[in-house]
């Protein structure tokens, strides 16, 4: 059921949502060298989705974001395991990461680290699990 009383909320959210999601992506990448990372970024993204849920209802949000959060958790787990188990192929201890620097024309030197992939897994798992929990409670009203 969608009530029409929350025009202010709905309008604000349309703007705020993108700011939050963008900021969560920033936080996610900042986690490389500064405070931040997959967990906090994931929580923030799920916070944004929860805001959507508050403004609209579950069905509408499901049409806006047709994501199966459980599958998302699975993909995240696979990312995390894959990155850590990749070290087995190179015969170094489990979870050992690799990193390097590359020169990109406009942006200058960028450091690449396989830990980012791991963190991406964490991010997906956090969003997936949080949203699964919230949906489970929210679904049967």
């Amino acid at each position: 059921m969608r009530s029409n009383n929350n025009i202010i909320l709905e309008t604000t959210i349309k703007v705020v949502l993108f700011i939050i999601v963008l900021f969560s992506v920033y936080i996610f990448f900042a986690g490389h060298y500064y405070p931040g990372g997959g967990f906090i970024g994931g929580l923030m993204t799920s916070g944004a989705i929860v805001l959507l849920l508050i403004a609209y209802d579950i069905k509408t949000v499901a049409t806006i974001l047709p994501v199966n959060y459980r599958t998302m958790t699975g993909i995240g787990l696979l990312f995390a395991i894959g990155t850590s188990a990749g070290s087995l192929l190179f015969n170094v201890p489990f979870l050992t990461h690799a990193f390097g620097h590359i020169e990109v024309p406009v942006l200058g030197e960028i450091s690449l680290h396989t830990a980012t992939l791991f963190d991406l897994g964490v991010y997906l798992v956090v969003v997936g699990v949080t949203m699964t929990i919230i949906q489970t409670i929210g679904e049967d009203e």
Binding site: F39, V129, T130, I133, T136, I137
Partner: peptide, 17 residues
């Protein structure tokens, strides 16, 4: 602490459900 917070977050969420 970070690890413990994550775990207690998960457990509390599960407990609430």
């Amino acid at each position: 602490i970070l690890t413990a917070i994550v775990i207690s977050f998960g457990v509390t969420a599960f407990f609430l459900v």
